[in-house]
């Protein structure tokens, strides 16, 4: 086990270099740079642009910029954002928690709903429940996140039941602790639904088909013929085995926790990383983009590793050696 983890960790080094290298080339190859937008401003002189260029290191060829960045990363220095003039780390940290809250709430929401529905659909195959479940999960998979987010905003505007985006009310600071929590939950409802719908839809399908496979297997028949009650067979023997492959999915979801909410955050004004990075991409704020890419690739790699380890803990048939 230990050697396996060590090996996996060693693998990440070339992987990270590869990912960052390609991203860096792609960003610097795109036409223009952070300073392009200032060139058409009659109020900003070419001298000023030249000074900024030298200061930001944009006058050097891309490979020198990349090597410098890589060297700084080794010292845990993610560089300074061009736009904000403060360190990339502090910018990312500001928003990290907000994105995490939203993604975690969506994860919790989708898993607690999808797994029981999947089990129900499989147990009562071809019943009305199963048909409704199938219908909604196909619908959920085919609807686009953007459309759903806009529809939700429209709902909020028309009914006034929910806030129009954002994370807190204007008067948040003056609320009591209990009201603060309620206020946050109230703001969480719509983005959680939007972010969770796709997950629910495909997890339900996945759980259903896994469960159907298991229910057909011989040990279930044995358990039932021994006289165990149907519900205990399904929950103890069926669901536990069916859930194994889903743990791998969880690994991906951990990676997505911090990067999966771009669209929702942008439409529903959630103050998370997604908005920061989107703006950084548009303004070609090089180190901010690189910093966030670096972070999401690390999360993806570790998410997978954690999933593999979890899987070996749950399923004794899998050995990591």
């Amino acid at each position: 086990m230990h050697t396996y983890i060590l090996r996996r960790l060693l693998h990440t080094i070339p992987l990270i270099i590869g990912i960052t290298f390609i991203s860096f080339i792609l960003i610097t190859m795109a036409p223009g740079d952070y300073l392009s937008k200032f060139k058409m401003n009659p109020q900003i002189s070419p001298e000023k642009i030249e000074i900024m260029k030298v200061k930001f290191g944009l006058d050097k060829p891309w490979y020198i910029q990349y090597l410098k960045w890589l060297w700084a990363i080794l010292h845990l220095d993610f560089g300074t954002s061009f736009t904000y003039q403060i360190s990339v780390t502090s910018l990312i940290l500001q928003r990290l928690l907000n994105t995490f809250i939203l993604s975690f709430s969506a994860l919790l929401f989708s898993w607690t709903i999808a797994i029981p529905i999947g089990i129900l659909c499989a147990t009562y195959r071809f019943s009305l429940i199963d048909k409704l479940g199938s219908f909604f999960s196909f619908l959920g998979q085919s609807i686009s996140e953007i459309l759903l987010a806009l529809a939700m905003l429209f709902l909020a505007l028309k009914t006034k039941w929910f806030p129009l985006g954002g994370m807190h009310s204007i008067n948040y600071e003056y609320l009591s602790l209990g009201d603060k929590i309620l206020d946050l939950l109230h703001h969480l409802i719509l983005p959680t639904i939007v972010l969770g719908v796709f997950s629910i839809a495909h997890l339900t399908r996945y759980m259903r088909s896994q469960m159907l496979d298991i229910l057909k297997s011989e040990y279930i028949t044995t358990a039932l013929s021994k006289g165990l009650s149907k519900s205990s067979v399904i929950i103890k023997h069926g669901a536990r085995n069916a859930i194994n492959p889903l743990v791998t999915l969880l690994g991906f979801e951990i990676a997505g926790l911090l990067s999966g909410a771009f669209i929702v955050e942008n439409i529903m004004a959630w103050p998370g990383l997604g908005r920061l990075i989107m703006e950084a991409l548009f303004s070609q704020d090089l180190y901010l983009v690189m910093g966030s890419l670096f972070m999401s690739s690390i999360l993806l790699i570790f998410g997978n590793l954690i999933a593999d380890i979890l899987l070996s803990l749950i399923d004794p048939r899998i050995r990591l050696d």
């Binding site: 909020a156 505007l157 006034k160 129009l164 985006g165 954002g166 204007i170 439409i267 004004a269 908005r275």
Partner: peptide
């Protein structure tokens, strides 16, 4: 005076329409 940061101009109009 509170400046609420919203993602785009659609949201600016929508917030005004909603009376916020």
């Amino acid at each position: 005076i509170v400046f609420v940061a919203v993602p785009d101009f659609n949201a600016v109009s929508m917030n005004f329409l909603a009376g916020e």
